[in-house]
Design a protein around this nucleic acid. Structure first.
Lengths: 355, 355
DNA sequence: CTGAAAGCGCTTACAG
DNA sequence: CTGAAAGCGCTTACAG
């Protein structure tokens, strides 16, 4: 019994990992040579290289990264600040980031801000302590802690998705104004003249830009903006449902024939509510969303929307950051816009009594 | 002009960060005392502590984590292996993990396996190189590289969501068999006797368990399993749509009156297809899903489904791992089951010609 | 092409 | 209660 226990225990003991000195001893060379062989094999003569590589294999050696990092003052880690990791939109952007970063040998620390200043502060401190070589900001602001600002950390910063005004680091976004304008123009071209807007939260830059695009498109078409057609929302399904109720409460005659929602989730909530009350989509109401989440293609009717290049946004931002971390020097201000696409589906058509 | 350039450049220079020796000098103590003051303040007399803390503040000192890790042989990092980071299901589990881990001071490296053996191997090597203190497996298997197995890394492992058979580390899951059985029993109790099953991929453990639950429930009810009512799927919306078509191709008389889908996405795809062809849900066909994704509450009709405690799964698994990393010793085999809940919504009701 | 040695920034017995 | 010193595992000028 006792011996059985013992054998169970021994399995748990951490295997002592080989260090560079072990490899050197086995290969009969100095640690410097082992290090060189691994870093720049071409600088070592073939015979040595063969011996070292064999010793590496036999010992199962992998370099201790903490030690290397301490020595070269790099971490090979990038911090990615996301507002909410559970949001599928960011999950796909993260995929693009992860692909690019991990291919270049970088690790990824995900800072899920989740609206918590404490978490944000902790992550700022982490970066200031030199735990990351660069930061990718998907959160629409430069992170802060009570007594520090991420800009003081001395590592490159790149923003993506949510543009941060008045900053000099590279930013990778879509043109929200123009794209929103295109979405609304689509409704105008179908013959709609009474077009509502379902907004995001006022303070949000994406909301501000999409609202601006809506305004411009109406202006282009010579349609006056009607403040009563701007419905408040906050990007959640729930506020989409509420906006649907607001719309239903209007007299049919004064009801808009089309609506542009600042994101898909709200659009889908609104459609669901409107249909439940007997409104036909798109016959009675055309709806355009924004984002291109997977569900926009699953719902009933499928949603006409602006599809953002999510993986592309992530991958491009990551590539920018890698360039910065590698060059060590900040580039001149760089503002990269990626194309977004209006995806026509079943939720839009000309108004019933058009022309 | 030149001087303007110069000043722009200097802003970019990395601020030299204070090290422990700087603090020690300023406070007039040894580095050992600074280290102690930070690690165990009570062990230092008040006057010293005050001086050290002031010096820390004045220099803006934060410990270099690579150096500390090298010294104490810890990383304070946990690797989380997820099959697909873009899957909202895992995103929410990740939230629970992140909450628990970051509260305990651990960082999070997300290994997005994405079906790539190369990535998997890279992450295994990373852990074997001592870059993480523990690993959370959400991927249903113990990670491997061509020449290594994660079990050899010598760090604690904990699995969650997808049970891994024949392993001795803690696992945190729901009881898929019993829960699936409960879902099907609900259909039986409504009076259904012809109940189809829309499956996941055969090799997947979750699929196997849910299928088993389906079988048991039918057996409990004295209903013979009909192989023709088991429709193939792979957890994607697309295969849900295909299964919907298969169902529609059947003669109405031989069509099942209810269906249990191994996950929500397939259920929603199937419902959409069935409705488009004129089938009434739930009148002509009752549908139960599995998972409780957000969209199950948005779609039309809302989906009766098994809601998994996603954050709870993540948080519990993280807590287990922390315990293991802290104790340093493996616990006896631990199999934690969290309760999942059948959420009744609008997609189920008694069959038309019941009784 | 290779080795000896310094040093990255910390923590922790060991003395005192 | 505090300090001097060793050492964590690497990389990289500097010689030769």
């Amino acid at each position: 019994m006792a011996s059985l226990n013992m054998s169970k225990r021994t399995r748990v003991i951490r295997q002592k990992t080989a260090k560079i000195a072990d490899v050197a001893r086995l290969a009969g060379v100095s640690v410097a040579t082992v290090s060189r062989t691994l870093a720049r094999p071409e600088v070592v003569i073939e015979e040595t290289r063969t011996r070292v590589l064999a010793a590496v294999r036999d010992t199962g050696y992998t370099p201790n990264i903490s030690a290397r990092n301490l020595r070269v003052r790099k971490t090979m880690v990038v911090l990615v600040a996301v507002p909410d990791i559970a949001n599928p939109f960011f999950a796909e952007v993260l995929q693009g980031i992860d692909d690019t970063l991990s291919a270049a040998g970088y690790g990824l620390i995900i800072a899920n801000l989740a609206g918590s200043p404490e978490k944000e502060a902790r992550y700022v401190d982490l970066v200031c302590a030199g735990q990351a070589d660069g930061v990718l900001l998907l959160c629409g602001h430069v992170m802060r802690s009570p007594d520090r600002d991420l800009r003081d950390a001395g590592v490159p910063l790149v923003a993506a998705c949510e543009y941060i005004p008045r900053e000099s680091f590279p930013q990778v976004t879509i043109n929200n104004v123009d794209t929103a304008r295109e979405a609304v123009r689509h409704l105008v071209e179908l013959g709609h003249t009474s077009i509502a807007y379902l907004s995001g939260p006022n303070f949000n830059i994406l909301e501000q830009q999409r609202l601006e695009g809506y305004r411009q498109a109406l202006h282009d078409a010579g349609i006056a903006t009607d403040a009563s057609l701007i419905l408040p929302g906050d990007f959640t399904f729930r506020t989409g449902v509420e906006a649907g109720r607001t719309l239903l409460a209007l007299k049919p005659a004064s009801r808009p024939t089309a609506l542009f929602a600042a994101n898909d989730e709200m659009a889908i909530g609104l459609i669901k509510t409107a249909r439940a009350a007997g409104l036909q989509i798109p016959d009675d109401l055309s709806v355009v969303g924004f984002d291109g989440i997977a569900y926009a293609d699953y719902c009933e009717p499928t949603l006409t929307t602006i599809v953002q290049p999510r993986r592309g946004l992530g991958a491009t931002a990551a590539a920018e950051l890698i360039a910065l971390m590698t060059n060590g020097r900040a580039e001149p201000q760089k503002d990269i816009k990626l194309p977004a696409m209006l995806m026509l589906r079943d939720s839009t058509r000309p108004p019933r009594r058009s022309g």
